[in-house]
Design a protein around this nucleic acid. Structure first.
Length: 277
DNA sequence: CGTGCTGTTGCTAG
DNA sequence: ACTAGCAACAGCAC
């Protein structure tokens, strides 16, 4: 599920439940996901601490305490659900956190991740920029000002395709495969164009479309999280209507010519040959 | 029934 | 500088 909008919505939903609460227990049903889980560090930083806030940086969800951050990445198939029971309910439940909310209710966050590409970690202190996970990340697309100019400058002498360029976390975070394709369609840029040959006006339009697409998805996702608390299945993500993603052969929403699919660096890309130059 | 292909992320080796 | 390969599993077409 997770691209930036999903992680943003999930972080807000988790925050609503746990902010101001007490992180009482962490139970791990396995020792590693993509990487080993630093269980004792995690417990030291979280357990017994008040949860100050739940934040997001890139596609990482951050649980802030006075001591530092709990760090959770969902990989490709990760999810967190909030339940009334500490009992693992779904297959591939790998961690369960017990929270005593500020209104003194017990709640359990269940971390589920079939493919185990996700990550659970923790860091002492609050200097994100100094941490390995974050130090080489580019700006947040929704916070960056003059994003078009920035992308234009970063792209000079870069021959890689524009799609790979905007998905490069060192350039810009949070633009995954789905929203990269959608944003390029809306900006009418062919995904195989070399990053260096895209003009400043095109980057300005692209920046605008990246922001608009992400904002629209957050807005759509946000409304589905009202019942996040106590759900017992999934938190109800849904995908905003998409113009090109997974629409091979279907008519372009602008010109009706068929959407085509190609591979770039092993990932599928969809676009309209007529609209995107 | 099995076999093969696909996938929302991100790191690393070459 | 850039891409292929890979991590481990589910869902689907055939």
């Amino acid at each position: 599920m997770p691209e930036l909008p999903e992680v943003e919505c999930l972080s807000r939903a988790v925050g609503k439940v746990v902010e101001g609460g007490l992180f009482e227990k962490a139970r791990f049903l396995r020792k590693d996901l993509r990487d080993p889980i630093p269980i004792s560090d995690f417990k030291r930083i979280l357990v017994g601490q008040r949860i100050e806030s739940v934040e997001r940086r890139s596609k990482y969800m951050l649980i802030r305490t006075e001591s530092g951050f709990g760090i959770i990445h969902l990989g490709m198939t990760g999810n967190i659900i909030c339940q009334d029971s500490p009992k693992p309910a779904a297959p591939h439940t790998h961690a369960i956190f017990q929270i005593r909310t500020k209104s003194d209710q017990l709640q359990w966050l269940h971390y589920i991740d079939p493919r185990r590409f996700g990550r659970i970690s923790a860091m002492k202190g609050h200097d994100l920029e100094g941490h390995d996970f974050f130090k080489s990340l580019g700006p947040e697309p929704l916070e960056a000002r003059n994003l078009g100019t920035y992308l234009f400058q970063q792209s000079r002498r870069k021959k890689k395709p524009i799609k790979n360029f905007i998905m490069d976390g060192g350039v810009l975070v949070g633009v995954g495969n789905i929203y990269a394709a959608e944003s390029l369609f809306k900006a009418r840029i062919h995904p195989e164009r070399e990053a260096q040959e895209v003009s400043l006006p095109s980057y300005n339009l692209l920046a605008k479309q990246i922001k608009a697409t992400l904002r629209r998805a957050i807005k759509a996702g946000g409304t589905t999280f009202r019942d996040f608390k106590n759900v017992d299945g999934n938190p109800g993500y849904f995908r905003i209507s998409l113009a090109v993603y997974d629409r091979t052969g279907k008519p372009c929403v602008e010109c009706r010519s068929p959407i085509v699919s190609i591979k770039q660096s092993g990932r599928s890309t969809w676009f309209c040959e007529k609209c995107q130059k």
